[in-house]
């Protein structure tokens, strides 16, 4: 493929993964920012979202794929949110949100979710039918002897569903931003993030906030997963990559900084996609991890946070 169409295709493909990554990483950033909990099980909430999406659509095969998908997009994040809420009540809360112990506890949750999924859902990858999926070919220009001519390069295309994933993600991210900045719940969350003792002194029930934030984090990961599952497939081991990339994004963006997380998601998602297309996916991961190491050495607070010193 020529360079021009190749770059455009790489950008389109990367935009889809960036959109899903942003949703997943925002969930992780929210949990860390407000609760100071490093949630190693975050990728498994993503996986559960995908697996539940498959289960829900499989129950609704009598209806059109669009109905099944729409129900899954609402129900699956709610169910995962409920699971996350229960995890907080039963496990994270019991170790007093102690940073070291929560890491160990969430590693335990990771294995529990993964193995429960293996024992119930099984080891196979299962597809979810997209609600709509039209291939949209994209034309390109080339100089011929007769001057500029339009032609349709092999493979330069996107599907309507992939465009919808980008659009839905943007809407959801705007929704998260609105909730955090314009509502009373957002105010309570931000107050808790800034100083939980003062917030508590003002009558905010911190533990309840924590439970809801953990649920919201899980639900956001699940939303990302429901969006991606008609493109990829649900599989019990699919939580690993989103976890790694979300951590990279959250560390680059500054732990707990939501705008930083979004910018970092765009940088990592797009560069990851471009490097993967033009060089190799392994090199993309190596470079992203190297970037994290460098940021941790020179700007431990993240690339996009103003120095707190």
């Amino acid at each position: 493929m020529e360079l021009g169409p190749h770059i455009l295709l790489a950008l389109l493909e990367s935009a889809v993964s960036t959109a899903v990554l942003a949703l997943t990483a925002i969930g992780l950033a929210l949990v860390f920012g407000i609760m100071r909990v490093v949630n190693v099980a975050h990728g498994e909430f993503f996986m559960l979202g995908a697996v539940l999406a498959w289960w829900i659509t499989d129950q609704l095969t009598a209806f059109s794929p669009a109905v099944g998908f729409a129900v899954a997009l609402v129900l699956s994040p709610l169910l995962v949110g409920a699971i996350a809420y229960a995890s907080d009540r039963i496990v994270i809360n019991r170790v007093d949100y102690d940073p070291e112990r929560t890491i160990v506890a969430t590693v335990g949750l990771l294995y529990i979710f993964q193995q429960i999924s293996l024992m119930t859902f099984g080891p196979d990858a299962r597809p979810v039918e997209p609600p709509f999926n039209t291939r949209l070919a994209i034309p390109w220009l080339e100089i011929t002897e007769q001057g500029w001519a339009v032609y349709w390069p092999w493979g330069l295309s996107i599907t309507s569903y992939k465009l919808a994933v980008i659009a839905i993600s943007i809407v959801l991210l705007i929704g998260v931003w609105l909730v955090l900045s314009k509502t009373r719940y957002g105010l309570i969350m931000r107050a808790t993030q800034q100083d939980k003792d003062i917030a508590q002194a003002f009558g905010i029930r911190i533990e309840r906030v924590y439970g809801l934030v953990f649920a919201a984090g899980g639900a956001l990961a699940a939303m990302g997963a429901v969006l991606i599952v008609p493109i990829q497939q649900a599989h019990y081991l699919m939580g690993g990559d989103p976890l790694l990339l979300s951590f990279i994004v959250v560390i680059l963006g500054g732990l707990g900084s939501l705008s930083g997380t979004l910018v970092a998601a765009a940088i990592i998602g797009l560069s990851n996609g471009m490097i993967a297309v033009f060089f190799s996916p392994t090199l993309a991961k190596i470079l992203a991890t190297l970037l994290v190491a460098l940021v941790l050495i020179w700007r431990p607070a993240g690339l996009f946070t103003r120095s707190s010193r």
Partner: peptide, 17 residues
């Protein structure tokens, strides 16, 4: 392509015309 890969479109542009 790595055997654990989940997304493939990005590999196909390498197919020569």
């Amino acid at each position: 392509i790595p055997p654990a890969e989940t997304s493939f479109t990005r590999y196909f542009p390498k197919i020569p015309r």
